[in-house]
Design a protein around this nucleic acid. Structure first.
Lengths: 126, 126
DNA sequence: CTAGAACTTGAACATTGGTTGAAGTCAAGC
DNA sequence: GCTTGACTTCAACCAATGTTCAAGTTCTAG
């Protein structure tokens, strides 16, 4: 389905979306290929994004820093409807916070493992 | 330089090294290609590792879980001499602990970013 | 209407951390 | 001294996360 002019004027081009989300256009296209975001197309086949898409991308990038893969983030975002409400963002945030905390806990485990590992290395060479 | 029989008997084959370090032989060869570990060769061109090499590999694997790349681990291990003493292991451990703690701190930063990011997403669509 | 910027697709490339397979060689026990 | 398992190299492949390039199309401002 293509767009009327009034509809189009509220939408963002790939370049605008990239700039607003602080990424490269190549990344935006990549994310769309991966199903992380969606676009409508103009009659000339150009991508047009909803105005909240840059926010999704920004949050996705933070989620990547938490350690989630694009695929995982895509899955999590399935539960977030179009035009997310504050509550939707909140649930998403909660999920990511929980995940980050899990990873922090894992790092503490790694620290413990590290200590036992080097301790074992000191022993007479088995 | 090749090895006399007595020398060789104290050294480990790639298979033994793999088993003692809990990895695959393919990984051991990979680590050697990357410069993470070194080997001597028999007159028949087979790898022979020092007995403490499995320990190095084990610690390297923990370091990977901390988040370091093989290249970074290799660099860190440059400072660890052959036949590491307990003090050498300790310095290494300290370094990795510090790194893990840095990453934990980074995750806390990510959490903060996440909150401000989703907060911004709630605002009237700028 | 037209120039130029921004867009399109598809494929190739890069990086990290390995695994797998083919084809051949070595080492150890009987 | 021969068999068999363990070893050798080299190359290809995998997944993830993009970037870059070529060749062509669309959009927008003047």
């Amino acid at each position: 389905m293509t767009l009327t002019e009034t509809q189009a004027s509220e939408l963002l081009t790939v370049g605008e979306t990239a700039e607003l989300s602080g990424t490269a256009t190549s990344a935006i296209r990549f994310y769309e290929r991966q199903g992380l975001i969606e676009s409508q197309r103009t009659s000339g086949n150009q991508r047009r994004y909803q105005p909240w898409v840059p926010c999704v991308v920004r949050v996705a990038r933070v989620a990547q820093r938490v350690g989630l893969s694009v695929q995982e983030i895509t899955k999590v975002l399935q539960d977030v409807p179009d035009e997310p409400t504050p509550e939707d963002w909140q649930r998403l945030t909660d999920y990511l916070v929980a995940d980050a905390e899990r990873r922090i806990a894992e790092l503490h485990t790694v620290l413990a493992d590290l200590k036992s590992e080097t301790k074992r290395c000191d022993l007479p060479s088995r």
